[in-house]
């Protein structure tokens, strides 16, 4: 029962969705110092959607990725510094090369859960430059356990040190975690990780379910800082894992301090499950869509929940924020004709 669980802290990456990617230099430095004190094994830094994702589509970062990485690099000694990239968003030349030059120790390459072969170029490039690599499958509630294993095996063949399943929409139930993580653990030689979101209030329970199914990497954020209903609240998940007898090497008190710092100095409002984020989880929509959907709903005077449910039906994937506009316009047009058809009928 004393298995070591490798903790990935995405507060300075995925967390920044919650402040529309507006983390400033003091916040990056302040959190990195505290993560170092807490002995976090791997601290992820950069735009919320990864390197090179600062854009009109996804939101511009306050600080360029390379500045965020440079600041964090100065503060992290025992803790490793990691970056994240989705192929098609950033490129090797513009983003991965400069991040490696800035001194990252690890790189996660992520893609929609059925598209693993678009990560090969980037994973192999990073490995050739001596960086530890991880593959990340996103929106994994949309694929079966068997499909995920097939995709994870491709990533394994590209030489990764681990494959993480993301519950990007916060849509998993514990039994989904057990089945999908368990399938990867028995089918892969490489480590398996899980990255939960909390739309259905299950992020901590799902982290435990993942570890009990054999996962050895848990990826979360301090205070659950993140898109929509937030990520798994790392200090809580770690406390529970310690109670269950797992080791993480993390100093829990210091991590609590880091989480208090986030609540005090970084968050604009508490991370909570509200009508929008709960609907988002039920619809199986990427958590980062929520703020864009809220804006579109106001602009077109439609119910944001209708937008989210329709995005779920259309099987939108991460990065397709421009579809929100299409959907909101269509709902607006249809609303003029038959408003009764759009009263959350799909929630039933």
């Amino acid at each position: 029962m004393e298995r070591l669980i490798f903790i990935v802290d995405s507060t300075l990456r995925d967390g920044s969705h919650a402040v529309s990617h507006q983390l400033n230099a003091d916040q990056v430095r302040g959190y990195a110092q505290r993560a170092e004190l807490a002995n976090i094994p791997l601290v992820m830094v950069g735009h919320g959607n990864g390197l090179g994702a600062s854009s009109l589509q996804l939101g511009r970062s306050k600080l360029p990725d390379r500045e965020m990485l440079a600041i964090a690099r100065q503060e992290l000694k025992r803790s490793k510094l990691g970056a994240f990239l989705i192929p098609g968003f950033g490129t090797i030349k513009n983003d991965i090369g400069p991040a490696i030059d800035a001194g990252i120790d690890a790189l996660m390459i992520a893609c929609h859960c059925t598209e693993a072969n678009i990560t090969r170029q980037h994973l192999q490039y990073a490995a050739s430059r001596g960086v530890a690599t991880y593959g990340v499958l996103m929106m994994t509630h949309m694929a079966t356990a068997g499909e995920l294993l097939e995709q994870a095996k491709l990533m394994e063949s590209y030489g990764v040190q681990g494959v993480l399943l993301m519950d990007s929409a916060g849509a998993y139930l514990q039994r989904d975690v057990a089945e999908k993580v368990g399938t990867l653990v028995s089918g892969l030689r490489t480590a398996v990780g899980f990255h939960p979101h909390n739309n259905l209030g299950l992020a901590v329970a799902n982290s435990v379910a993942a570890v009990e199914a054999g996962a050895s990497i848990i990826d979360g954020t301090a205070r659950g800082f993140g898109a929509g209903a937030g990520n798994v609240q790392l200090e809580v998940a770690i406390a529970v894992l310690h109670r269950l007898g797992y080791q993480t090497g993390v100093d829990l008190y210091r991590l609590m301090d880091a989480a208090e710092y986030v609540a005090r100095e970084v968050m604009k409002k508490p991370i909570t499950i509200d009508a929008v984020t709960l609907t988002s989880g039920l619809a199986g929509v990427f958590s980062g869509f929520a703020p864009h959907a809220i804006r579109a709903a106001e602009r077109f005077d439609v119910d944001v929940r209708d937008i989210l449910m329709e995005l779920g039906r259309r099987k939108a994937v991460g990065g397709q924020e421009d579809l929100i506009l299409d959907v909101a316009m269509n709902l607006k047009q249809k609303k003029g004709q038959r408003p009764e058809d759009f009263q959350l009928e799909s929630l039933s």
Binding site: Q57, G88, C111
Partner: peptide
Amino acid sequence: KTIIILNPADPPYLMHNT
């Protein structure tokens, strides 16, 4: 700046450019 998205939805999406 370019962003490329592959979407596996079935029936498949038409090529969509914003």
